[in-house]
């Protein structure tokens, strides 16, 4: 089938099998390998992408289900080489160790901050509860989200532990 959708702010029109999983379309056909496949069952969140701005598991979506919709992957977060504040915060706090969960966690973070620029710790935990990380123990990740939140809101970060 011919599939039209918006990928990282660009219109895409390609011939594709409609029953291809979105993650396979991204990784195998479009060479966007930033999106990772962990469990392939919707449990780990490594394959998280944004569909119309909302986090979804790309391992549980078919290509034909994104028709005429907007998909954002980790490759779409930086603008002209400038990292998104959330990406910067993740690198600074040590929220990235092996890095396999990072693309998914960053997209969940960006979706959260777009909807709620000043989330509480509890709201952060809930928003990221669909993303597993086996390295960090989450603390550094929560700190990164809080740092990104402060930066996005233009608040001083001088007293940060960072």
């Amino acid at each position: 089938m011919k599939l039209d959708f918006v990928l990282n702010n660009k219109r895409v029109s390609i011939n594709v099998k409609g029953g291809l999983r979105l993650i396979d379309l991204l990784r195998e056909q479009l060479d966007l390998v930033g999106t990772k496949e962990g469990c392939g069952k919707g449990e780990c969140g490594a394959c998280t992408v944004l569909l119309d701005g909302k986090p979804v598991c790309s391992c549980l979506i078919l290509a034909s289900q994104v028709r005429n919709r907007e998909v954002t992957t980790i490759e779409g977060l930086s603008i002209e080489g400038e990292m998104h504040p959330a990406q910067e915060a993740f690198t600074e706090t040590g929220a990235v160790q092996c890095g396999f969960c990072s693309p998914g966690l960053l997209l969940s973070t960006v979706a959260l901050l777009n909807e709620n620029p000043e989330p509480s710790r509890e709201q952060i935990r809930r928003a990221l509860s669909g993303n597993l990380c086996r390295c960090t123990g989450y603390e550094k990740i929560f700190e990164a989200v809080e740092l990104a939140s402060r930066r996005i809101n233009g608040l001083s970060v001088q007293n940060d532990k960072v």
Binding site: G42, G45, T48, P55, V56, C57, I61, S108, G130, N131
Partner: peptide, 9 residues
Amino acid sequence: AGSVQIRNR
């Protein structure tokens, strides 16, 4: 139920 990702679908 589920997680944010699951509830969105």
